[in-house]
């Protein structure tokens, strides 16, 4: 049983961003953006993780490989981590991943942001800003490969 889901293509290309948000701060910040009705473009889909330190570099590479135009990793501000200093581990991993992506010219498609539970506006601004940047960069250059 293999499902082929038809891709509903929209007119014109719009960025497609995957955001890893930590449960305690940045996911809550995204929630607050919603509660406050801060509008931002529908270019981002949030994947909740308990801590930004859960994000494996391979997740980011995989998302880009699968065609994501940008990947955002968002965690608590340094010092605010629900798990004491998980975000510091995340910072090391994400920065290293960005350095690796630099070799491929994709480093601008990865962002690490600290967004607190009270920064709903900031969440929407980050998404808007990242979307604009991705628009400037254009579509993810990965070629679609027939399996």
């Amino acid at each position: 049983m293999k499902m082929e889901t038809p891709a509903p293509r929209m007119n014109g290309w719009e960025p497609n961003i995957l955001a890893f948000c930590c449960n305690w701060c940045s996911y809550a910040g995204a929630d607050l953006a919603g509660v406050s009705r801060f509008q931002y473009p529908p270019t981002v889909k949030v994947l909740r993780v308990m801590c930004s330190s859960r994000v494996e570099p391979a997740f980011i590479l995989k998302a880009l490989k699968d065609g994501a135009d940008g990947v955002l990793v968002a965690g608590c501000h340094i010092g605010d981590c629900h798990y004491i200093d998980g975000n510091k581990n995340a910072e090391i991993r994400i920065n290293n991943t960005r350095k690796a992506l630099a070799k491929l010219g994709l480093e601008k498609r990865l962002r690490l942001e600290w967004i607190s539970a009270s920064e709903g506006l900031r969440f929407s601004e980050v998404i808007r800003d990242f979307t604009d940047e991705i628009k400037k960069l254009g579509e993810n250059p990965v070629k679609e490969v027939k399996k």
Partner: peptide, 27 residues
């Protein structure tokens, strides 16, 4: 394995996030 947030579970969600680019293989 980080249960409930395992590489496989998150991996499937990543595959699915850009719907249409890749379908989910149930096999």
């Amino acid at each position: 394995t980080a249960q409930h947030f395992s590489s496989k579970e998150i991996g499937e969600a990543i595959d699915a996030f850009d719907k249409g680019v890749r379908s989910i293989s149930i096999e």
